[in-house]
Design a protein around this nucleic acid. Structure first.
Lengths: 199, 199
DNA sequence: TATAAATTTGACTCAAGAGTCTAATTTTTG
DNA sequence: CAAAAATTAGACTCTTGAGTCAAATTTATA
């Protein structure tokens, strides 16, 4: 009887999990070789599947790209919500958040993709708007820091662009098996970001 | 008689100029919509030409992408050569160079593309090696700065990755007609970079 | 003006890859 | 076990866009 409820739930859950695995694998491929240099067939093979199987989990290749973007921004949002207003000064708040974001991006294959142009219409608008909202929130923190004196005065947006570049550039060089591990990168990056803007 | 020498020279020169215009226009398209979202036909139309005309100037689309990359790195090299060892401390030298690089990237449509994966074999190796050499040179300057005490000690490569991100991210947001002009960006970015690493 | 070189065009070929169809197989549930 | 749902596979279609070709036109040179 509990089965009547649990079973279909488990099915959906499994389906969801597999779908997630597909998106993850695709995201990793996109990050390494780029969206257009990764074919659905190749992505499927990575997972030991055939192309058609992929289409059982996703509607289109573009949907995968969309989900990849959204997934990261969801994680970003969560991170912001969790760590916002946890510190006294704007500078401290920003430091915590920045550090967490670096850790996020060096963990479990979440990566900030840059190919937004390959999304069409609504999706593209969506993603850009999500990015915009996040940037705006971060910019607010910076402005708060400028107000409370913890951050040197200047163009807040420009300040944000600078260190957001560091996050986005991570994709280009970071290798999970490389010399530098996530925590170390987070620590050094945060120190550099902090010193760069401290008031 | 002087014509016998000048004429063919002028022809080649004109051909070269047009070729350059093609690469510039394509580079701009690549920067805005990405390599794979820019068709040769569209690029040609931008210049008021037809596709075949393009192939009179370049061998292939990939060659254009290659040239775009090389062109920027040539400019980078020139910038490095011109401004290296012009300052006493590593920090000062780096500041000058960084500022010049920002100005370079906000000038005449030179932009740092990220799509290296769409280059095949040799070209890709070439471009990555060029990038590597430049990064290595910058890293050397940072190490010199760490040695002379002008730059805070730490992992030099990581330090470089951080602010190189700012340069690469420029493409994503910089708009020539926007609120922020090149000189202003260069000034603020350099200040932020400098404060971030000063010893 | 005549010949050769430079430059352009529109119509074509061709390959890659996204997405679909049909049918087979496996798993779940009553 | 039987019926329904979930999942997979291989062969197919169709579009997009890179690159080519043969011929036309323009420009330079003798």
């Amino acid at each position: 009887m509990s089965a009547q409820i649990k079973e279909p739930f488990d099915r959906k859950k499994q389906h969801g999990n597999k779908r997630l695995a597909v998106i993850r694998a695709a995201g990793e491929a996109f990050r390494r070789r780029g969206y257009h240099n990764s074919s659905m067939t190749e992505i499927a093979q990575t997972l030991g599947l055939t192309k058609t199987a992929l289409y059982y989990y996703v509607k289109s290749k573009e949907e995968i790209l969309y989900e990849c973007h959204i997934m990261v921004y969801d994680a970003f949002d969560e991170c912001l919500l969790e760590h916002m207003a946890a510190a006294e000064t704007g500078l401290n708040e920003l430091s915590i958040i920045f550090s967490e974001l670096v850790k996020l991006l060096t963990r479990d294959g979440l990566s900030l993709l840059t190919d937004v142009s390959s999304l069409s219409g609504e999706s593209q608008k969506d993603v850009l708007s999500r990015r915009g909202v996040i940037e705006a929130r971060v910019t607010n923190i910076v402005e708060r820091g400028m107000a409370d004196g913890s951050i040197r005065k200047g163009d807040a947006q420009l300040t944000v662009f600078f260190f957001m570049g560091a996050l986005n550039w991570l994709n280009a060089w970071y290798a999970p098996e490389g010399r530098l591990d996530g925590d170390m990168i987070a620590a050094e990056f945060t120190a550099q970001m902090r010193a760069g803007i401290a008031g």
